[in-house]
Simulated assay, not measured.
Amino acid sequence: MPCLASLKHPVKCYGILLEDCSWWCGVLVAVSTPGARVGKRGRRIVIRANGEEREVPVDRIDALLVTTNVTVSYGAVKLLSEALVPVFYARGWRPMAVLMPFVGHGSVLVRREQIRAYMDWRGEHLAKAFAWAATENKAALLLALAKSRGGEVAEGLREAAFRIRELGSRIRSEEGAPDSLRARLMGLEGEAASIYYSTLALVLPEELGFKGRTRRPPRDVVNAALSLGYSLLNLRVSIALAVCGLEPYAGFLHSDRSGKPSLTLDLAEEFRQPIVDRAVITLAVRRQLTPEDYDSGLLSEKAKKLLLQALQERLTTETKAGKRKSSYEQEVFRQARRLARFLLGKDREYKPFTYRW
Protein backbone atom coordinates (compact mmCIF):
# COMPACT_ATOMS: atom_id res chain seq x y z
CA MET A 1 0.00 0.00 0.00
CA PRO A 2 1.54 3.37 -0.96
CA CYS A 3 2.03 6.08 1.61
CA LEU A 4 -0.56 8.80 1.02
CA ALA A 5 2.12 11.50 0.84
CA SER A 6 2.80 10.38 -2.72
CA LEU A 7 -0.76 10.97 -3.89
CA LYS A 8 -1.47 14.09 -5.94
CA HIS A 9 -5.23 14.17 -6.41
CA PRO A 10 -7.26 16.72 -4.44
CA VAL A 11 -9.53 16.28 -1.47
CA LYS A 12 -12.83 14.61 -2.24
CA CYS A 13 -15.78 14.70 0.14
CA TYR A 14 -19.05 13.14 -0.81
CA GLY A 15 -22.22 14.98 0.18
CA ILE A 16 -23.57 13.31 3.27
CA LEU A 17 -20.03 12.54 4.26
CA LEU A 18 -19.19 15.99 4.67
CA GLU A 19 -17.44 19.07 5.62
CA ASP A 20 -15.62 17.51 8.56
CA CYS A 21 -13.27 15.64 6.21
CA SER A 22 -12.41 18.61 4.03
CA TRP A 23 -8.92 19.06 5.39
CA TRP A 24 -7.48 15.68 4.35
CA CYS A 25 -5.22 15.20 1.34
CA GLY A 26 -5.98 12.37 -1.04
CA VAL A 27 -9.47 10.86 -1.16
CA LEU A 28 -10.67 10.20 2.36
CA VAL A 29 -14.30 9.08 2.55
CA ALA A 30 -15.60 10.06 5.98
CA VAL A 31 -18.99 8.77 7.15
CA SER A 32 -20.31 10.80 10.08
CA THR A 33 -24.09 10.37 9.76
CA PRO A 34 -25.63 8.10 12.46
CA GLY A 35 -27.44 5.15 10.91
CA ALA A 36 -25.61 5.39 7.58
CA ARG A 37 -24.93 2.17 5.68
CA VAL A 38 -21.84 1.43 3.61
CA GLY A 39 -22.15 -1.25 0.93
CA LYS A 40 -20.82 -2.07 -2.53
CA ARG A 41 -22.01 -2.15 -6.12
CA GLY A 42 -19.53 -3.67 -8.50
CA ARG A 43 -16.22 -1.83 -7.97
CA ARG A 44 -17.91 1.06 -6.18
CA ILE A 45 -18.50 1.79 -2.52
CA VAL A 46 -22.08 2.92 -1.90
CA ILE A 47 -23.03 5.10 1.10
CA ARG A 48 -26.69 5.55 2.05
CA ALA A 49 -27.91 7.98 4.71
CA ASN A 50 -30.97 10.18 5.26
CA GLY A 51 -32.53 9.03 2.00
CA GLU A 52 -29.43 10.01 0.00
CA GLU A 53 -27.01 7.77 -1.83
CA ARG A 54 -23.45 8.33 -3.01
CA GLU A 55 -21.14 6.05 -5.00
CA VAL A 56 -17.35 6.26 -4.94
CA PRO A 57 -15.06 4.15 -7.16
CA VAL A 58 -12.98 2.05 -4.77
CA ASP A 59 -9.83 2.73 -6.77
CA ARG A 60 -10.12 6.42 -5.88
CA ILE A 61 -10.39 5.86 -2.14
CA ASP A 62 -7.30 6.10 0.09
CA ALA A 63 -9.10 5.44 3.38
CA LEU A 64 -12.60 5.07 4.83
CA LEU A 65 -13.21 6.89 8.11
CA VAL A 66 -16.19 6.00 10.34
CA THR A 67 -16.94 8.42 13.18
CA THR A 68 -20.33 7.28 14.42
CA ASN A 69 -22.82 4.37 14.46
CA VAL A 70 -22.47 3.17 10.85
CA THR A 71 -23.02 -0.26 9.31
CA VAL A 72 -20.27 -1.42 6.94
CA SER A 73 -21.29 -4.54 4.99
CA TYR A 74 -19.16 -7.66 4.51
CA GLY A 75 -19.10 -6.97 0.78
CA ALA A 76 -17.79 -3.44 1.33
CA VAL A 77 -15.06 -4.67 3.69
CA LYS A 78 -14.06 -7.35 1.16
CA LEU A 79 -13.86 -4.86 -1.70
CA LEU A 80 -11.92 -2.32 0.37
CA SER A 81 -9.51 -5.00 1.53
CA GLU A 82 -8.87 -6.21 -2.02
CA ALA A 83 -8.12 -2.60 -3.01
CA LEU A 84 -5.74 -2.23 0.00
CA VAL A 85 -7.93 0.50 1.53
CA PRO A 86 -7.81 0.73 5.36
CA VAL A 87 -10.95 1.42 7.42
CA PHE A 88 -10.50 3.74 10.43
CA TYR A 89 -12.90 4.07 13.35
CA ALA A 90 -12.86 7.16 15.55
CA ARG A 91 -14.85 8.39 18.53
CA GLY A 92 -15.33 12.14 18.59
CA TRP A 93 -12.51 12.38 16.03
CA ARG A 94 -10.18 10.49 18.35
CA PRO A 95 -8.59 7.35 16.81
CA MET A 96 -10.19 4.19 18.16
CA ALA A 97 -9.42 1.28 15.78
CA VAL A 98 -8.10 0.51 12.33
CA LEU A 99 -8.96 -2.37 10.00
CA MET A 100 -5.94 -2.99 7.75
CA PRO A 101 -6.15 -5.20 4.64
CA PHE A 102 -4.58 -8.56 5.49
CA VAL A 103 -2.87 -8.81 2.10
CA GLY A 104 -1.09 -5.55 2.82
CA HIS A 105 0.59 -6.78 6.00
CA GLY A 106 4.07 -6.85 4.54
CA SER A 107 4.49 -4.06 7.10
CA VAL A 108 5.28 -6.71 9.73
CA LEU A 109 8.99 -6.04 9.12
CA VAL A 110 8.54 -2.37 9.94
CA ARG A 111 6.63 -3.14 13.13
CA ARG A 112 9.17 -5.74 14.21
CA GLU A 113 11.96 -3.20 13.87
CA GLN A 114 9.82 -0.57 15.59
CA ILE A 115 9.55 -2.74 18.71
CA ARG A 116 13.23 -3.68 18.63
CA ALA A 117 14.30 -0.06 18.24
CA TYR A 118 12.94 0.97 21.61
CA MET A 119 15.79 -0.81 23.41
CA ASP A 120 18.69 0.14 21.11
CA TRP A 121 20.33 3.36 19.91
CA ARG A 122 17.45 4.06 17.52
CA GLY A 123 15.03 4.48 20.41
CA GLU A 124 17.24 7.11 22.05
CA HIS A 125 17.76 8.85 18.70
CA LEU A 126 14.01 9.06 18.00
CA ALA A 127 12.99 10.11 21.52
CA LYS A 128 15.47 12.98 21.43
CA ALA A 129 14.45 13.95 17.90
CA PHE A 130 10.74 14.18 18.78
CA ALA A 131 11.40 16.08 22.03
CA TRP A 132 13.81 18.51 20.39
CA ALA A 133 11.41 19.20 17.49
CA ALA A 134 8.65 19.95 19.98
CA THR A 135 10.79 22.63 21.65
CA GLU A 136 12.27 24.05 18.45
CA ASN A 137 8.88 24.54 16.81
CA LYS A 138 7.50 26.25 19.91
CA ALA A 139 10.44 28.66 19.95
CA ALA A 140 10.12 29.30 16.21
CA LEU A 141 6.45 30.25 16.50
CA LEU A 142 7.11 32.64 19.40
CA LEU A 143 9.87 34.34 17.39
CA ALA A 144 7.53 34.62 14.40
CA LEU A 145 4.90 36.28 16.58
CA ALA A 146 7.53 38.67 17.95
CA LYS A 147 8.34 39.94 14.44
CA SER A 148 4.94 41.56 14.06
CA ARG A 149 4.88 43.04 17.56
CA GLY A 150 6.88 45.56 19.49
CA GLY A 151 7.77 46.72 22.97
CA GLU A 152 7.46 44.50 26.01
CA VAL A 153 5.32 41.91 24.21
CA ALA A 154 7.98 41.26 21.56
CA GLU A 155 10.69 41.16 24.21
CA GLY A 156 8.69 38.68 26.28
CA LEU A 157 8.18 36.43 23.25
CA ARG A 158 11.88 36.49 22.34
CA GLU A 159 12.97 35.82 25.91
CA ALA A 160 10.63 32.81 26.17
CA ALA A 161 11.92 31.46 22.83
CA PHE A 162 15.49 31.75 24.10
CA ARG A 163 14.65 29.82 27.28
CA ILE A 164 12.88 27.13 25.28
CA ARG A 165 15.86 26.73 22.95
CA GLU A 166 18.13 26.32 25.96
CA LEU A 167 15.94 23.41 27.03
CA GLY A 168 16.17 22.04 23.50
CA SER A 169 19.95 22.07 23.74
CA ARG A 170 19.76 20.11 26.99
CA ILE A 171 17.47 17.58 25.31
CA ARG A 172 20.07 16.93 22.62
CA SER A 173 22.78 16.25 25.21
CA GLU A 174 20.77 13.82 27.35
CA GLU A 175 21.79 10.15 27.46
CA GLY A 176 20.84 7.04 29.42
CA ALA A 177 18.71 3.91 29.62
CA PRO A 178 15.44 4.09 27.63
CA ASP A 179 12.97 4.53 30.49
CA SER A 180 15.02 7.00 32.54
CA LEU A 181 15.98 8.95 29.41
CA ARG A 182 12.35 9.15 28.31
CA ALA A 183 11.32 10.52 31.73
CA ARG A 184 14.01 13.23 31.62
CA LEU A 185 13.16 14.20 28.05
CA MET A 186 9.47 14.47 28.87
CA GLY A 187 10.35 16.61 31.89
CA LEU A 188 12.38 19.03 29.77
CA GLU A 189 9.75 19.13 27.03
CA GLY A 190 7.06 19.72 29.65
CA GLU A 191 9.02 22.65 31.06
CA ALA A 192 9.33 24.11 27.56
CA ALA A 193 5.59 23.65 26.99
CA SER A 194 4.76 25.45 30.23
CA ILE A 195 6.88 28.44 29.18
CA TYR A 196 5.38 28.41 25.70
CA TYR A 197 1.72 28.30 26.63
CA SER A 198 1.98 30.89 29.39
CA THR A 199 3.80 33.20 26.95
CA LEU A 200 1.06 32.84 24.32
CA ALA A 201 -1.19 34.80 26.68
CA LEU A 202 0.83 37.92 25.69
CA VAL A 203 -0.64 37.89 22.16
CA LEU A 204 -4.20 36.68 22.81
CA PRO A 205 -7.15 38.96 23.66
CA GLU A 206 -7.58 39.19 27.43
CA GLU A 207 -11.33 38.59 27.25
CA LEU A 208 -10.70 35.01 26.07
CA GLY A 209 -9.30 34.19 29.52
CA PHE A 210 -6.28 32.20 28.32
CA LYS A 211 -3.59 31.91 31.02
CA GLY A 212 -1.89 28.69 29.95
CA ARG A 213 -2.67 25.15 28.80
CA THR A 214 -5.55 23.38 30.55
CA ARG A 215 -7.16 20.04 29.62
CA ARG A 216 -9.82 17.60 30.79
CA PRO A 217 -11.69 19.86 30.59
CA PRO A 218 -10.21 22.87 28.79
CA ARG A 219 -11.19 25.96 30.77
CA ASP A 220 -11.56 28.56 28.03
CA VAL A 221 -12.32 28.86 24.34
CA VAL A 222 -8.66 28.89 23.25
CA ASN A 223 -7.87 25.70 25.17
CA ALA A 224 -11.02 24.06 23.80
CA ALA A 225 -9.94 24.94 20.26
CA LEU A 226 -6.41 23.63 20.90
CA SER A 227 -7.77 20.36 22.30
CA LEU A 228 -10.04 19.77 19.31
CA GLY A 229 -7.30 20.76 16.90
CA TYR A 230 -4.81 18.38 18.53
CA SER A 231 -7.36 15.55 18.40
CA LEU A 232 -7.90 16.12 14.68
CA LEU A 233 -4.15 16.26 14.11
CA ASN A 234 -3.67 13.02 16.08
CA LEU A 235 -6.21 11.28 13.88
CA ARG A 236 -4.43 12.55 10.80
CA VAL A 237 -1.06 11.35 12.10
CA SER A 238 -2.50 7.95 13.11
CA ILE A 239 -3.71 7.40 9.56
CA ALA A 240 -0.28 8.29 8.16
CA LEU A 241 1.49 5.92 10.55
CA ALA A 242 -0.88 3.01 9.91
CA VAL A 243 -0.75 3.38 6.14
CA CYS A 244 3.06 3.47 6.27
CA GLY A 245 3.11 0.21 8.25
CA LEU A 246 3.84 1.61 11.73
CA GLU A 247 2.16 0.81 15.05
CA PRO A 248 0.58 4.04 16.40
CA TYR A 249 0.53 2.68 19.97
CA ALA A 250 4.26 1.91 20.30
CA GLY A 251 6.13 5.18 20.75
CA PHE A 252 9.59 6.31 21.75
CA LEU A 253 9.04 9.53 23.71
CA HIS A 254 5.54 9.37 25.19
CA SER A 255 4.88 6.72 27.81
CA ASP A 256 3.29 3.39 26.91
CA ARG A 257 -0.19 2.99 28.34
CA SER A 258 -3.14 0.91 27.26
CA GLY A 259 -5.26 2.87 24.82
CA LYS A 260 -2.67 5.65 24.40
CA PRO A 261 -1.35 6.12 20.83
CA SER A 262 2.21 6.91 21.91
CA LEU A 263 3.81 7.06 18.46
CA THR A 264 0.95 9.22 17.21
CA LEU A 265 1.66 11.68 20.02
CA ASP A 266 5.40 11.52 19.24
CA LEU A 267 5.03 12.43 15.58
CA ALA A 268 2.26 14.95 16.22
CA GLU A 269 4.74 16.99 18.29
CA GLU A 270 6.39 18.03 15.03
CA PHE A 271 3.20 19.57 13.64
CA ARG A 272 1.27 21.08 16.53
CA GLN A 273 2.65 24.59 16.13
CA PRO A 274 2.63 25.01 12.32
CA ILE A 275 -0.81 23.46 11.85
CA VAL A 276 -2.96 23.73 14.97
CA ASP A 277 -1.47 26.51 17.08
CA ARG A 278 -1.05 28.88 14.18
CA ALA A 279 -4.68 28.31 13.14
CA VAL A 280 -6.06 28.84 16.66
CA ILE A 281 -3.93 31.93 17.33
CA THR A 282 -5.07 33.52 14.07
CA LEU A 283 -8.74 32.93 14.92
CA ALA A 284 -8.25 34.31 18.43
CA VAL A 285 -6.32 37.43 17.40
CA ARG A 286 -8.93 38.22 14.74
CA ARG A 287 -11.57 37.78 17.48
CA GLN A 288 -13.35 35.12 15.46
CA LEU A 289 -13.28 33.07 18.67
CA THR A 290 -15.24 34.64 21.51
CA PRO A 291 -15.99 33.70 25.13
CA GLU A 292 -19.54 32.84 23.98
CA ASP A 293 -18.09 30.05 21.82
CA TYR A 294 -17.14 28.11 24.97
CA ASP A 295 -19.49 26.07 27.14
CA SER A 296 -18.39 23.50 29.72
CA GLY A 297 -15.22 22.51 27.90
CA LEU A 298 -16.79 22.43 24.42
CA LEU A 299 -16.75 24.70 21.39
CA SER A 300 -19.85 26.07 19.71
CA GLU A 301 -20.77 24.72 16.29
CA LYS A 302 -19.78 28.04 14.76
CA ALA A 303 -16.34 27.87 16.35
CA LYS A 304 -15.86 24.26 15.24
CA LYS A 305 -16.61 25.18 11.64
CA LEU A 306 -14.20 28.13 11.77
CA LEU A 307 -11.51 25.91 13.26
CA LEU A 308 -11.94 23.22 10.59
CA GLN A 309 -11.67 25.83 7.86
CA ALA A 310 -8.56 27.30 9.46
CA LEU A 311 -6.96 23.85 9.76
CA GLN A 312 -7.69 23.18 6.11
CA GLU A 313 -5.93 26.40 5.17
CA ARG A 314 -2.89 25.52 7.28
CA LEU A 315 -2.65 21.99 5.91
CA THR A 316 -2.69 23.17 2.31
CA THR A 317 -0.20 25.97 3.00
CA GLU A 318 3.16 25.34 1.37
CA THR A 319 6.29 25.16 3.50
CA LYS A 320 9.91 24.78 2.56
CA ALA A 321 11.25 21.38 3.56
CA GLY A 322 14.89 21.07 2.60
CA LYS A 323 15.28 22.09 -1.04
CA ARG A 324 11.64 21.64 -1.99
CA LYS A 325 8.27 23.13 -1.18
CA SER A 326 5.30 21.03 -0.16
CA SER A 327 2.15 21.39 1.91
CA TYR A 328 2.02 20.59 5.60
CA GLU A 329 -0.38 17.74 4.90
CA GLN A 330 2.17 16.14 2.58
CA GLU A 331 4.90 16.59 5.19
CA VAL A 332 2.90 14.63 7.78
CA PHE A 333 2.96 11.58 5.53
CA ARG A 334 6.54 12.14 4.46
CA GLN A 335 7.64 12.12 8.09
CA ALA A 336 5.80 8.84 8.69
CA ARG A 337 7.55 7.37 5.68
CA ARG A 338 10.94 8.72 6.85
CA LEU A 339 10.35 7.11 10.23
CA ALA A 340 9.64 3.74 8.60
CA ARG A 341 12.73 4.04 6.41
CA PHE A 342 14.91 4.84 9.42
CA LEU A 343 13.62 1.86 11.38
CA LEU A 344 14.30 -0.45 8.41
CA GLY A 345 17.86 0.85 8.13
CA LYS A 346 17.29 2.56 4.78
CA ASP A 347 18.17 5.97 6.27
CA ARG A 348 21.03 6.50 8.71
CA GLU A 349 19.18 9.09 10.79
CA TYR A 350 15.71 10.44 11.37
CA LYS A 351 15.37 14.17 10.82
CA PRO A 352 12.30 15.63 12.54
CA PHE A 353 10.18 18.25 10.80
CA THR A 354 11.02 21.80 11.82
CA TYR A 355 9.97 24.94 10.07
CA ARG A 356 11.10 28.52 9.56
CA TRP A 357 8.52 31.27 9.45
Rank of each mutant, 00 (worst) to 15 (best):
L64F: 10
E53Q: 03
Y118R: 05
V108C: 02
S180H: 04
M186P: 04
L145G: 11
E247R: 14
L18C: 08
L143I: 04
L298W: 14
R37F: 10
N137G: 04
A76H: 02
K351A: 15
L84E: 04
R236M: 06
N223E: 00
R54F: 02
V70Y: 11
I45E: 00
S326Q: 13
G151L: 15
K211F: 03
E53G: 01
T33E: 01
G151C: 13
E155A: 15
R182V: 11
I281R: 08
I281Y: 09
R278Y: 15
L343T: 06
S169K: 09
A30G: 10
K325G: 10
A340H: 03
L28G: 02
L289T: 06
T264R: 09
V77H: 06
V221T: 11
L253F: 13
L344S: 08
L80H: 04
I195L: 08
A76P: 02
Q114R: 03
C21T: 05
S173R: 10
R54H: 05
T199D: 01
Y118A: 10
G51V: 06
L344V: 08
L185K: 09
A133Q: 09
F130I: 10
P95I: 10
R278I: 12
L307A: 07
G106D: 15
S255K: 14
T317D: 03
S258M: 12
P95W: 06
R94H: 13
L157Q: 11
L228Y: 02
A340P: 12
E269W: 06
K346S: 06
A310I: 11
L311P: 00
I275L: 10
E349Q: 06
T316H: 14
K8F: 04
A140T: 08
R213P: 04
N69C: 07
A284T: 11
K12L: 10
T290L: 12
G51M: 04
C25G: 12
G156M: 05
R112Y: 13
D295K: 13
K8L: 13
F353C: 02
V280I: 12
T199E: 03
N50M: 04
P178T: 14
E19P: 05
E155Q: 14
Y294D: 00
Y89G: 11
S6H: 08
N50W: 02
L188V: 09
A140S: 06
E207M: 07
R94Y: 12
A192N: 05
P205Q: 07
K12V: 11
G345C: 01
A146E: 12
Y14L: 07
F102V: 15
I45S: 01
A201K: 15
L339I: 09
V31S: 00
L228E: 07
I275S: 00
N234E: 06
